[in-house]
């Protein structure tokens, strides 16, 4: 991945920076230029809560080539305590069969991918069971 493209996403991937609509309260993660709920263009910067629960999940057993080293892995939609939802891997799961919708999780800073050709480690958030 090109460094510029990676660099642009760092505030979100490293620090969970989001935008909150000043009119209707919609939380945009990543930040947006216009609110999809009320069309306002004014947002104030906020940082997302790092705790939440699993809304749904799957265990990926046939993955893309670049995730081949960690396949199988669990991934889910996580609802954070401020109601914002995002997609994240669920790391450190010992027994996939025990994963359940509704389980409490916490977001942690982890390596997500390697860019083999450029030799760059790429980081971001993953969920771990709380």
């Amino acid at each position: 991945m090109i460094t510029a493209r990676y660099h642009r996403e760092v505030p979100q991937r490293y620090r969970l920076e989001a935008g909150k609509c000043t009119k209707c309260g919609y939380v945009a993660f990543p930040p947006r230029l216009v609110c999809p709920k009320c069309n306002t263009k004014k947002f104030k910067p906020i940082v997302l809560k790092d705790e939440g629960k699993i809304i749904t999940y799957t265990v990926i057993r046939v993955g893309p080539d670049k995730f081949s080293k960690e396949t199988p892995y669990a991934i889910g939609i996580i609802e954070l305590n401020d109601k914002l939802r995002l997609t994240a891997q669920i790391a450190g799961v010992v027994d996939f069969d025990k994963l359940k919708i509704g389980q409490k999780v916490k977001l942690v800073f982890r390596k997500i991918q390697d860019d083999g050709k450029a030799g760059i480690h790429m980081y971001g958030y993953k969920a771990v069971l709380a």
């Binding site: 990543p30 999940y57 799957t58 046939v62 080539d65 995002l86 994240a88 891997q89 919708i101 993953k126």
Partner: peptide, 29 residues
């Protein structure tokens, strides 16, 4: 798998490792 995944959000779904079967599997669960 990677080519099909470009139909999802590249920065916020695919980056995390989601695949197409994975997205629909989450709908199924």
């Amino acid at each position: 798998t990677e080519a099909l995944a470009t139909a999802a959000d590249q920065e916020y779904e695919v980056y995390q490792g989601v695949t197409f079967p994975g997205l629909y599997a989450m709908i199924a669960h």
